[in-house]
């Protein structure tokens, strides 16, 4: 029983982690907290659905097309909606991301307002039994997809010159611009990249959650809790936070009360902000003056 709960917790946690990862990547590279990321995730899932189920493309092509579309949407949003206000107060940019969320959700509601659609699993095979643990192929894909993204972005930010440059440009944009770095170009690229991650996440998760215009809102809260728990802006922290929240939900739901599952993420946010404001892996920010 315990092993099954741990396995299911890791799957759920991976879902939260992959969304938290996208938001963390954007935060680290541009300094923007993306409150509309749940809607991007929803848009990615719907894009795959449209290309595979409506247009009739093969799944791999549909997936690639959806990622490409979301990358373009992310870049366009940055260029048209964010860049003109990026030097304003943080709250203005944050509100713009909220507006993006309403815009994308509204478009989805316009076309699919009456439907909760089923997204076929990527691999349609019977559940896999590992001892007493039951896992579906989709569960394994979610965990594997999450881990692959984490490793890729960790390597990108920690080991590549471009990754380090992006972080530096985010922290000191004026200095980066003075040495000839195209900071707005970097930012636009990162908006595209995180939108692409949203498409990947949507593709992995939609067969589990099903497709509907508001599907991203609920998971966004869990992703925020994961980021807060793990340490805001820390890639490993976002993933660790997501996994721990997934595990805790399952264990608390089984051993204490099922009513705890839904409020657990909120409890985490409250407790962490009071007891451990920088999260598990977060570092206290210090500014040299």
């Amino acid at each position: 029983m315990f092993a099954q709960l741990v396995a299911s917790g890791l799957v759920q946690g991976s879902i939260y982690a992959v969304i938290a990862l996208g938001m963390t990547v954007l935060f680290r590279s541009t300094g923007v907290v993306h409150f509309g990321y749940g809607a991007f995730f929803m848009a990615g899932a719907f894009a795959v659905y449209v290309f595979s189920q409506v247009v009739g493309m093969a799944f791999v092509l549909a997936f690639l097309a959806a990622v490409a579309v979301l990358v373009l949407v992310g870049m366009a949003f940055e260029r048209v909606l964010v860049r003109p206000i990026v030097h304003g107060p943080h709250v203005t940019v944050a509100m713009m991301t909220v507006a993006m969320s309403y815009l994308l959700t509204g478009v989805a509601r316009f076309f699919w307002g009456q439907e909760v659609l089923r997204m076929p699993p990527i691999v349609d095979v019977p559940p896999i039994f590992v001892g007493s643990i039951v896992l579906t192929a989709q569960d394994l894909l979610i965990i594997a997809g999450c881990m692959a993204l984490v490793v890729a972005f960790f390597l990108f930010f920690a080991r590549t010159k471009l990754g380090k440059l992006m972080q530096a440009a985010s922290q000191v944009p004026r200095g980066a611009a003075l040495v000839g770095i195209n900071v707005p170009g970097f930012h636009m690229a990162m908006w595209g990249v995180v939108a692409g991650i949203a498409a990947v996440a949507g593709t992995l998760v939609a067969p589990v959650t099903m497709l509907y215009p508001d599907m991203g809102a609920h998971l966004l809260i869990k992703a925020f809790a994961a980021m807060t728990f793990g340490g805001f802006g820390n890639l490993g922290g976002a993933v660790l936070g997501g996994l721990l929240i997934g595990l805790a939900e399952q264990l608390a739901g089984f051993y204490i009360s099922t009513a705890l599952i839904d409020i657990f993420a909120y409890l985490v946010i409250i407790v962490v902000l009071i007891v451990l404001p920088n999260g598990i892996l977060g570092k206290k920010e210090a500014t040299r003056v």
Partner: peptide
């Protein structure tokens, strides 16, 4: 008596309790 909240994406704890 068990709870399952709206927009939940997994019912493993509930099903395991029911199975027990």
């Amino acid at each position: 008596k068990l709870a399952l909240e709206r927009s939940t994406t997994d019912a493993t704890p509930q099903i395991l309790q029911l199975r027990n």
